[in-house]
Design a protein around this nucleic acid. Structure first.
Lengths: 219, 219
DNA sequence: ATATATTTTTAGACAAAACTAAAAATTTGT
DNA sequence: ACAAATTTTTAGTTTTGTCTAAAAATATAT
């Protein structure tokens, strides 16, 4: 598998998660910042290798093999992210770019040893689950902070948007994974929330709340 | 810089060390297991980028920029090798292949942090020096075991041949970096040596001795 | 339902990096 | 020194992955 093929597989996987099964050519092109014609070319190649199901004009989906491949790449990406944060003191907004490169390194021994060094982490620095060796992983029981009712109490366990911009914003406002959160008030008008987070009271916009995952207590 | 360009630069650097300044097209092709015509093509490209000095039929040498580039890649390669051995329990015969991939990862922060994690090592698992951030490094004072006189005493500090085959041979015979070595006898006939290594007496062939570096005491 | 807009695919080009085969330059042997 | 051998380069192809421009299929809107 070439680097480029791996990137396509990964993108198709991510687009397939959130939405319909069949992924549109244009959606892939947009996310990968490439042209639709290039996507069509690559899809044909992936199809020949039995990594995707493809019928012209009908979108594309991963085969079982493609899915397994995607999970392998995601496993590597997320393990490297944990490594960068835990061992090399990267902040959570700096890891993505480097992990994008490291995820393509080919060595089973390397990734298994890394997993061991990190003590078999189950989640990456953004709260996303890390597939195990066989591609298995459990989506953590979590909800968007914007979706839970007033008076909910829980722990911040992940972010939906993991762009550097959003993560830096959270840093600036002292919001981090593991923080205790209580929803004090939900504003009818604009959907903003009054929350208590690790003892501090603050107000956050609906946009912020809809990009934070919370694990609600006694659910 | 593409991966391929980096590999050429690295190869030209290594060939330039051991031998004449000007490196032959054929030598590069042989070491990289490619064809001379491919080498010529690439040399032209590197020349355009001012990484090598090139005059047709006259061989090739690195420019100052090319040299700096090579040292940067070698620094990364050797730091990753240390990481693999120290942190991931790779053996010294397993690191090269993976380091060949890792050396191409682009991130200054990554490599500086890795250097810190490893406590700024000066030598890689084969005893080769690791260039610092600015490309500076000191060749350790060392000699081939085959070159030192009878009764020399010292420490094994490196290998010349770092192929997996040779390294595994050394493992099997309990020879490792850091071992104390005394040259008891040098056989006129075939150049084989009787040595005492960490207390054990053994005989090694001239070929073995000429691939082991020793730092001789009181030199 | 049919014209319009959008999406997707095809066709043809290009750059990187490799190859083979043949030509040109250099080196070597006598 | 000059013919033979070797080394290096050129010329022309190939593969991967991209692009633009145009054609084809699908979706949408009145």
């Amino acid at each position: 598998m070439t680097r480029s093929e791996e990137n396509y597989i990964k993108t198709i996987f991510h687009l397939g998660r959130k939405g319909t099964r069949e992924v549109a050519t244009n959606a892939i092109a947009e996310l990968m910042e490439t042209k639709p014609s290039s996507v069509t070319d690559m899809i044909k190649r992936l199809s020949e290798k039995d990594l995707v199901n493809y019928k012209r004009y009908q979108g594309v989906s991963l085969t079982a093999l493609g899915n397994k491949t995607a999970l392998g790449i995601i496993r590597k990406h997320r393990l490297w992210e944990v490594f960068l944060v835990e061992k090399l003191d990267f902040s959570w907004d700096e890891v993505h770019e480097v992990a994008e490169q490291l995820e393509h390194i080919k060595s089973d021994k390397l990734i298994d040893s890394l997993d061991r060094l990190l003590a078999y982490p189950k989640f990456d620095p953004h709260g996303d689950p890390i597939p195990d060796k066989n591609g298995g992983f459990k989506e953590r029981d979590r909800e968007l902070l914007s979706e839970v009712p007033k008076n909910s109490v829980g722990v911040c366990v992940g972010v939906k948007d993991s762009s550097a911009t959003f993560l830096k914003f959270l840093d600036k406002n002292g919001i981090a994974l593991g923080n205790q959160i209580r929803v004090m008030e939900i504003e009818e008008f604009d959907g903003s929330l009054n929350i208590e987070i690790d003892g501090r009271k603050m107000q956050i916009s609906h946009v912020i709340a809809s990009n934070l995952y919370i694990k609600v207590n006694n659910d």
